[in-house]
């Protein structure tokens, strides 16, 4: 029945739904993904980030929160220029990481 209103969708992150296996696969080939401390340097310097939704920091966070689809959204505009690689204080090989994320998470499903 239509009452003129409906249940609001929940924006809550549910870590109980986090897909550990897939993230572990990623961490196995890209152990550096675990090193991110969310400083935001990558996003700040990103060539695409100013014009499109592109942020490696956000992508890693979404993966850790079990929100894989949103994570990929944040990597789509990436042109693999490698500027983030230069600024990452923890020396994460960001280009390599991005490619691995795409490989693992795009191939699944």
């Amino acid at each position: 029945m239509d009452f003129g209103y409906s249940l609001s969708p929940s924006s809550r992150i549910d870590l109980d739904l986090f897909d550990r296996n897939r993230f572990n696969t990623l961490a196995e080939i890209e152990p550096d993904v675990l090193k991110c401390m969310a400083c935001g340097s990558c996003t700040a310097t990103c060539t695409a980030g100013k014009y499109a939704k592109n942020s490696l920091r956000s992508a890693i966070l979404y993966l850790q929160n079990g929100q894989d689809k949103q994570a990929l959204e944040y990597l789509k505009p990436c042109m693999l220029c490698g500027k983030c690689f230069m600024v990452c204080p923890r020396g994460i090989n960001t280009r390599h990481l991005i490619l691995s994320i795409l490989k693992i998470y795009n191939n699944a499903k």
Binding site: D16, S58, L61, N65
Partner: peptide, 12 residues
């Protein structure tokens, strides 16, 4: 709250 993503979060 996961303040980095700005979303409420729950875990068991």
């Amino acid at each position: 709250e996961d303040t980095l993503s700005g979303k409420p979060l729950k875990v068991t």
